[in-house]
Amino acid sequence: MDTLSRVALGVLTVACCVVSASALGQPNNPTGPLTRAEVRADLAAWRAAGYDPLDWLHYPENAQRAAAIVAQRRASGAMPQPAQ
């Protein structure tokens, strides 16, 4: 193994350590994790707003559009707020 590839391997190792350490430093959610029923209800609301999780061709746009529709419906009281 030459010196350049050893340096590249070392940089990659350090980068992986930094990323994993920062993932451990995420703040704790005081409300706790969502239940399976809450996640399913949220997905049902997104799908009712037109989100298709299998549509990879239009992924960011369809997710953003559905998020805006769901937020608008929740703000207007048309659907319940998620548990917080």
Results as ranks from 00 to 15, higher is better:
L24I: 04
R47S: 12
R74A: 15
T13Y: 05
A83V: 07
L57D: 12
V7P: 04
T35D: 00
A15K: 06
L12P: 02
P27S: 12
A37R: 11
V19H: 08
A15W: 00
Q26R: 14
V11T: 01
V18P: 05
Q81N: 13
A67S: 14
A23I: 08
L4P: 01
M79W: 01
A63Q: 09
Q81Y: 03
T31L: 15
V18W: 05
V7T: 02
A48H: 05
Y51C: 12
P82W: 02
I69P: 04
A68G: 14
G25Q: 15
G10D: 03
V70Q: 00
P27Y: 12
M1F: 02
P53I: 00
N28A: 15
N62K: 15
S76F: 01
L12Q: 03
S5D: 05
Q81C: 00
P33F: 09
R47M: 15
S20H: 10
V14L: 08
A67I: 00
A23V: 06
N28D: 13
S22Y: 09
P80H: 05
V14F: 04
L57I: 08
A63S: 09
V70T: 07
Q84K: 13
Q81K: 11
D52F: 07
L34F: 14
Y51L: 15
V7K: 01
P30G: 11
G10W: 01
A41T: 06
L24Q: 09
Q72C: 04
M79N: 07
A67E: 12
Q26L: 15
R36T: 10
P80S: 06
P80K: 07
A67L: 12
H58V: 10
L34M: 15
P33R: 14
S76Q: 11
A66F: 04
V19R: 09
G25V: 12
V14K: 02
V11L: 13
V70C: 02
N62M: 12
A78R: 11
S76Y: 00
L57C: 04
L9R: 14
A45S: 14
T31E: 15
V7H: 01
V11N: 04
L12N: 06
P80T: 05
G50Q: 06
A68F: 01
R6C: 04
D42P: 03
E38F: 02
T31S: 15
W56N: 13
T31Y: 13
P53K: 07
L12T: 09
L12V: 09
A45W: 00
A68Q: 13
A44M: 05
V14W: 04
D2S: 06
L57P: 03
A45T: 04
R73K: 07
